[in-house]
């Protein structure tokens, strides 16, 4: 059964339909990629899935439960965690606190919220440290997030999503703005997460997609134009015309 499903999901910004009747199924335990040219509506789709804003029409079903219109903070508690395309961390907080905040939210318990000292939450701190170790930032735990390099901020971006112990991990171009070396590291990282999480991955770089994905969906002008295994997608003539042609030539 699909863990995450959308039915004719549509989002219009005035005259622009950024997401147009998208029906998508993400199977539990798989890595499902979403590709498409700039402005295809991929990030908007994530914003809908995570409740950033409600859809104009259509439904989102997570684990058999209709979550359409549920506010973002509640969706996070249900176990849908995301990373952002544009790095979106807490600049003045330490790396550890950045991740701790996400780990604490997932505990879904407000006990001791205003009174217990935060270093007394051993399991939360442990979960935060594991997430940092997963992305290779364990030794930077005490540095403020604004002081680390762009590449490390991308790793932190991922760690914040991981710390929530998500049931579905939504990654929006985790390698955005990375050097070839850093990209390699990020790909290895995502590959390492495969199997441990159900992952939906938005990515521009074709080599990454083809190497790691179980399934690929292609978006174009807000609509899904194809879906299949990486090999099928590469052969699909419509995809080649709409999108791959340009990318392959790159």
């Amino acid at each position: 059964m699909a863990l995450l499903r959308t039915e004719s999901l549509t989002k219009a910004f005035g005259a622009l339909t950024a997401v147009n009747g998208v029906t998508l199924e993400v199977q539990a335990g798989t890595l499902h990629s979403i590709i498409g040219p700039n402005g295809a509506g991929k990030t908007t789709l994530f914003n809908l899935l995570t409740g950033q804003f409600p859809p104009t029409s259509g439904r989102i079903v997570f684990d058999g439960r209709d979550i359409t219109g549920t506010p973002a903070h509640r969706i996070a508690h249900l176990g849908l965690a995301r990373s952002f395309q544009r790095t979106n961390v807490f600049p003045a907080l330490s790396i550890l606190d950045n991740v701790w905040i996400a780990a604490f939210a997932r505990g879904r318990s407000w006990r001791g919220l205003v009174w217990r000292r935060s270093d007394g939450y051993a399991e939360v701190t442990e979960r935060a440290r594991v997430a940092l170790a997963d992305v290779g930032l364990a030794d930077k735990a005490d540095q403020p997030a604004r002081e680390i390099s762009h590449g490390e901020q991308r790793q932190l971006e991922l760690a914040i999503a991981l710390a929530a112990a998500p049931r579905v991990l939504l990654l929006d171009e985790p390698a955005a703005g990375l050097s070839p070396d850093e990209t390699q590291k990020m790909v290895a990282l995502v590959r390492g997460l495969k199997g441990r999480y159900t992952i939906v991955l938005i990515e521009h770089k074709m080599d990454i997609i083809m190497g790691v994905s179980d399934r690929v969906s292609v978006m174009h002008f807000g609509s899904l134009i194809a879906e299949g295994t990486p090999a099928e997608i590469q052969r699909n003539p419509e995809v080649r015309r709409a999108y791959l042609g340009g990318m392959v030539a790159e």
């Binding site: 995570t50 979106n88 961390v89 003045a92 907080l93 606190d97 604490f104 919220l113 914040i160």
Partner: peptide
């Protein structure tokens, strides 16, 4: 307390705080 951290996180980035 956790509240102190959460408030600072909101100060730093309320969109991300909501998202987590």
């Amino acid at each position: 307390s956790p509240l102190g951290k959460i408030l600072q996180a909101i100060r730093e980035n309320d969109v991300r705080a909501e998202a987590v």
